[in-house]
Each structure stands twice: as structure tokens, then as C-alpha cells.
Design a protein around this nucleic acid. Sequence first.
RNA 1: GGAGAGAUGGCAGAGUGGUCGAAUGCGGCGGUCUUGAAAACCGUUAGGCCCGCAAGGGUCUCCUGGGUUCGAAUCCCAGUCUCUCCGCCA
Length: 433
Amino acid sequence: MLDPAIIIEQSDLIRETARKKGLSFDLDRFIELDTKRRKLQVEADKLRSQKNEANGKIAKMEGEERQAVIAEMKLVADQEKTLSEDLREVEKEWKILLLQAPGLMSDKTPEGKDDGDNVELYTWGKPRSFEFEAKDHVQLGLDLDIIDIERGVKIAGSRNYFLKGDGALLELAILNYTLQKLVAKGFTAFLPPMLVKHEAMLGTGYFPGGEDQAYALGVQRPGEAIESDDKYLIGTSEVSVASYHKNETLSEEELPKLYAGYSYCFRREAGTYGKDTHGLYRIHQFQKVEQVVLCKNDKEESAKMHEFLLKNAEEVLQDLALPYRVVAVCSGDMGQGQYYKNDIETWMPSRGSYGETHSCSTFLDFQARRLNIKYKDANGDKRFVHTLNNTCIASPRILIPLLEQYQNKDGSITIPEVLQPYMGGKSKITKTI
RNA sequence: GGAGAGAUGGCAGAGUGGUCGAAUGCGGCGGUCUUGAAAACCGUUAGGCCCGCAAGGGUCUCCUGGGUUCGAAUCCCAGUCUCUCCGCCA
């Protein structure tokens, strides 16, 4: 959410930002409503003030005089009621629009329409060249009996899978390794709720707009029965962890908060029919270790944190010796609330390209305003924190490059050294039976 | 799932229709005293919105949303959450 004052005062900038991000935001309507809202509030406040003044007096009056004033105030109360209703109506629409206003955008963000316009900043590592015919992760998983997509689909529908045996253990190893690494860097580990209230989705900026992508429990959809739970499955632990301090005022000394959320993530992937249907790339359920940061309301500070989060994720890929590149996400591929965003794309041999595995975002105070998370600064003033987040590892997508890059000619998979302690010391995944 | 109790400021806790945004205590902050500290004493100590260059003023908020009333922390309705007891259960 933007500071409403900014929308009014810098309307040209906001209009431009909405255009660049490809968002529709009815700025003119917002300004119109804002003007109306102020006017109505001034009038309503005046009538309320009249009422309050009379209330004190009526208590002390008696007889006819009292009855006369009460009769008079009855009229004022009626007027006030009508006016308040109008005000409430206007505010309602005003708030809905405010939630749709685009967050500010960094100068560093390249302008573009979609992910095709993202700009590569640098690469790390070299894709492996195979001296034998390499398999893709689906074939490897099937042959080693560690990934079972067919049965996953049988049980849970399209875009579902089982991880099995060493496949299951490997995923846990990667996640555990990553979490430990973050904890060693000062992060606090979180196992957050995966089922959250509407306000958490709203506060982090996924709603309104992203309702299609979230699994909802007990919420009425067209043609479906109504149930009483109004709960949503998170698409990322960012939703729960960033909301952790909702409606709280922190002290400046305790910032930055470095949080590592570990959870399953659920995504409906609506509107992606036919896209990335092969293998474990685009699926409905995965596990992720997410970095979430709350820091001071200072662009330099959040830029520093952004760099920090990016490097943490890169380190994990470097530990795993997986080649990757970092891109600057362009305006059109960025979310409503994001100020600056980098994706890390890891080399995936079977795709013959880099595929998105991480997403690092700076929000400034966009989320903090919605979540009402403040801190008291050195002057004693209350300010909204800045929030950031970045994937540290997400699996099973990361298994795609991992399995494919680490495969051997005999069909076995070498387990990266850093993961071996998390796999009971095992160094290879081989065919069992 | 059944029965009951409750939700008030940072915390504890009064207040059951009329100057109540709210007593009191604790905590926090500032000060007096002190070589320093403690104790004691004095003062101060919520947030949102609106008007205003500012000083300042108005308004809203006692879980949330409606309602009754000239007037609601207090009365009514709905919802949420917490606690206790019983049942069920990973």
C-alpha cells in the first residue's frame, strides 16, 4: 500500500509507475474520491462536534429546556447519520482503490513488458558438458525410483508427484542444509502456519489480485457450497513470516529482523495450462526456505539487505556448484508492491536454459503499511519498517538442476559433498531393488 | 462436538447510559534530591483520520461489525478470539 498522500502529490509518478508495471489503477477516480472523502469528513466532524458539545449540557438540564435541546439534537443526529453513511461509502471505495495502487519502483528496474525483457546482470559457473547422453530429471527420478510423477497425478491430479526414498531424503537434506546455513548467519528459523487468514494474504500484497493463485478453504466460489473457514493455503512462508509482527511497534535496536521461514507452499497455477507441464518445474506443492527481513525505513539499508539476501542464496548454489545467472526483473514482470527485484535462474540441462529458482524483492514500506508494522526510531518517531524477501532454496524445482548436473554415466547421482552429512554420510544415489 | 466465563491503555485492573479517551497500581520517559545509584517526591506517558504554513483545533477508537438513544466502555444483535469443564482425537 502506498502512502495516500504520495498518490495525490506525485500523481504523475504513480500514473507512470502503473503504466510501466502494466497495472490498471484508476488514479483519477482515486483523486476524486479523496477530495470527496475530505469534504465529507470535515462536514461530519462539524456535526459530531455539535452533538458532543450538546451532550455535556443536556446532562445538566431539566424540564422544557432539556426537551427542546433534545429535539434539536435529534435533527442534528439524523443529519450526521446520513453524512456518515455517505462518508463510509466513499471510504469503502477509496480503500479498495488504495489497495490497488502500485508501489514505487527503483530507477534500477529495467523497463519491459514480461520476463523476456529481464536483463541479465551476471552469471556464475559453467554448464556441464556431458560426454554421454544425459537424462532429464524425470527419467533419472523414474530409473532410480526416487520421483514418481505418475502416481502423484493418480492420487492428487495434474502437477503433483511423490518424492520417494533417497529423493525424499535429498529434498530434506537440501532444505535442512540451507536452513542451518541461514541460522549460522543470524537468521531465526520459523515453522509458520501454512493456513492463514485473509488479512495475511492482503497484508503481504497477494490479495487483492492473486485470489486465483491461492487455494482457499471454506470460501465461496461460484457454484460451490459455502463453508465457515475463511482460510488460505500460503504460496510462500513470506505470507506468515512477514505478517508475524502485524500491528506491532518494534524498537530500532532490534532491527533488522532476519527470519528464515520453512514451509510447504501451495500454488494453484491457474492460467498456466500447457505451460511447463513436464516434470517438477511447475507444480502445486513444494517446500521452500524463505528469507524475510524487516529493517529500518531507509533505502540504503534495504539496498544493503537486498544484496545480503541475494548473496546468501547465491552461496547455497555455489556450495552445490550449480551454475546460475542473476537477472534484474523488468517493470512488467514485477509485482504491484515490489520496488526492486532480482531473480536467480539456475542452469537446467534438460531445458537447455536457465530456469527461475529464486526471487529477491525489496518492498520498501509497501507491505509494512498494509500489515501496520512500525518501529520507533532514534527521535522517538514511529515509522513503517521496510520489508524484503528472497528464496534461499525451493525444492523440488532445485532437484531439476541438481539431479541433472550430478548424474553419472551409469545412471547414479553423486550427492553434493555439503549435503552428504544430511544424507547419513551417503555419497551416491544408486538404483536399489 | 456439548456447557460455562471472559475480552478496557505497554502490563495489571476499576468503571454497568451523561463533561470517561477512561480511576488506581506497575512499568517507561523527564526532573528534584545524591559523589553516583537506590528510595522518596514532582511531572509526563496511545493510535488513526481531518482542518491548519505553524501554533493549535476537531473527530474517531474501551475485541470486530451492525443497532437502540439527544447521548454507549456501559443496553441489544451478529461475528472473532481467549480461558475452564466434559466428550472425541494425531
